[in-house]
Design a protein around this nucleic acid. Structure first.
Lengths: 350, 350
DNA sequence: CTGTTAGCGCGTTCAT
DNA sequence: ATGAACGCGCTAACAG
């Protein structure tokens, strides 16, 4: 019994050995073991082969199969930064969806460095991955990725889209998120707001900025946003830019729209460092609702993106593209939603 | 220039084509491109081959190479749960170290399910990974992993060791961590303490429990630990067990040793739910110092494990094992350290 | 239904 | 210093 559960298959047992053990030709064994071919084989033979395989502990060599078939049932996943925990749900979603089809994810990191991006992509190409799902695209990366597509590598963007590139993408509805955020602050009574902008070379932040500006104008709110932009979407940068916002604004905003949770957390730090309180003096709303956003202090009001689903949908597209690489998919935008917690409240004067 | 940067190599360009373009035999081209063989080739020829490869955009087919060489420069990484953000630094460490040697990590998840573990391991075997780094081992898993070793798959454990299994491992010094934690609470003046135990089938929690018990006895502290153990190291379970601890203890502990940060966060929730305050009424110390532990409320006092380094060292061992699979490594224990933040303070009566 | 043959792309003998 | 030939393990024609 225990013996059975531990049966992993032997690396060294080859299909030929199975065939020999079953007194059959290797290709018969091959077909017997392939569910899509075994109907051509007498069921008695199939049984015989299966049993021989079982007894010897045969494991198909996926490398050899990959060479022969020209496909590896592997897809490359390119992420910007593995320490950025909000991508965990994305990876989970991708891996989960892939598993159902027997695919596996090869995860590689770019650290937002373009040279690394090029190298990583080349490496994945070299590994003959069947497709790539990329959540690390910066705005200048379209030509690079299109080059990969031209090489016959199906490519799907996730989270970070590349507008007007024609590349299939699955991204959160950033415009909607900004509008929901601004509306929330407006409804609470805030009249002077500011945003903490993420890097301008990432589509999501551009879209969030634009939609925020538009909504703020529509609602005739006062915009106290600083000129400075966060160089990276990190806690440190959030702290830095928030400090600048506080120092330089002629009239202090009572609410901050941070373009992601990291920036929001940094902003809250800066608020405290300035001797103020969040949310009493300054409300802060974030974006993403990553792990822990509900446990920071104060619990973060934020825009939730459906992380796992983004990953799943992206993997799904990749899988379909593998089947038919000529298919075209319009960009997918998944809805986001408001999660109200403790970091926002009506302004003091309301 | 831009053209150059985008040069990813063509999937379809084969070594043979390069050889033909250079008017050479394929095996000469092969040697010319292999740094460890190219010294046998006239440098003029090497140049010629390199140039041809460059111009055609040749990319070595790592699948074919893998089949031929019998190794894939790929190592499998088995983790319990991708959503558990404290493994991010581990993965980062592993991937970072591997990259230096041109290796790549194939990440797979077990969800702490034994059947999945078996399947995952079999799959990695099938993919012919050159080694496995596993941070998902439960106490019963030694036979399974040893089976893999017997199949010729170098295996190293990271974070979660398997004592007396003989399997190489790189883990935090859990005993030290417990002692540091208890000493910290003791130094603050606490006399009645309790621990929140993680699952008993994971070596780290067992070791932490044992060392805690020993230290508490040495210092003659009163132990108000509940019988109940967390079924998983999660916030929810921390909440549940802490509630039980509060309800059932005859004399309420003034300080809690949570065996990881998740449990600690849950414990703090439960403290609040009971109408108490952390740290004023109950101090809480955690373990791991994962991402965000410094931003929860109150900022968590905890035992820091060197996540990235654990990953790096584990990858290092795996790499060495690949070179010489007969090598034996004694278990490595990396030191942990106390990080004092806001969740601990002297007891009210001190 | 089953056996035969021919490679996938590459590295490594063994010759020359 | 280079070429020829073989085979890694598997699958996909093409027989029969």
């Amino acid at each position: 019994v225990a013996r059975q559960e531990l049966n992993l298959g032997s690396r060294s047992v080859t299909l030929k050995q199975v065939a020999t053990a079953a007194n059959l030709h290797i290709s018969t064994a091959s077909r017997a073991l392939d569910p899509s071919k075994s109907w051509r084989i007498s069921s008695r033979t199939v049984q015989r082969v299966r049993q021989a395989a079982e007894e010897l502990g045969y494991t198909p060599d996926l490398v050899a199969r990959g060479l022969k078939r020209g496909s590896t049932t592997t897809i490359g996943v390119i992420v910007a930064d593995l320490e950025n925990t909000f991508i965990n749900p994305i990876i989970r979603g991708i891996a989960g969806r892939l598993e159902r089809d027997g695919f596996v994810a090869l995860v590689a990191e770019t650290l937002n460095d373009h040279d690394r991006f090029v190298r990583v992509l080349g490496h994945l190409l070299s590994r003959r991955v069947d497709a790539v799902v990329c959540s690390a695209a910066s705005l200048g990366d379209a030509p690079l990725l299109k080059r990969a597509v031209k090489e016959g590598l199906p490519t799907v963007l996730v989270v970070r889209g590349l507008p007007r590139s024609g590349l299939p993408s699955v991204a959160p509805d950033d415009g909607l998120g900004s509008r929901i955020a601004v509306d929330h602050l407006h409804a609470l009574g805030h009249r002077v707001v500011a945003q903490l902008k993420g890097p301008g070379n990432i589509s999501n932040f551009v879209a969030r900025t634009r939609a925020f500006d538009a909504r703020v104008a529509e609602l005739s709110l006062e915009d106290a946003t600083a000129d400075e932009t966060a160089a990276e979407p990190t806690v440190e940068e959030g702290r830095r830019v928030m400090q600048l916002t506080l120092e330089r604004s002629v009239v202090r905003p009572t609410a901050i729209y941070a373009q992601n949770d990291m920036l929001a957390i940094g902003a809250i730090d800066a608020v405290r460092a300035a001797g103020l309180e969040c949310p009493q003096d300054v409300s802060v709303i974030g974006f993403n609702d990553g792990p822990f956003s509900d446990h920071v202090s104060p619990a973060l009001t934020t825009i939730r993106i459906p992380g796992v689903e983004l990953g799943e949908r992206a993997a799904e597209l990749a899988l379909e593209l593998i089947q038919d690489s000529d298919r075209r998919f319009p960009p997918v935008e998944l809805p986001v939603s408001l999660v109200v917690r403790e970091s926002t409240m009506p302004p003091a004067y309301a």
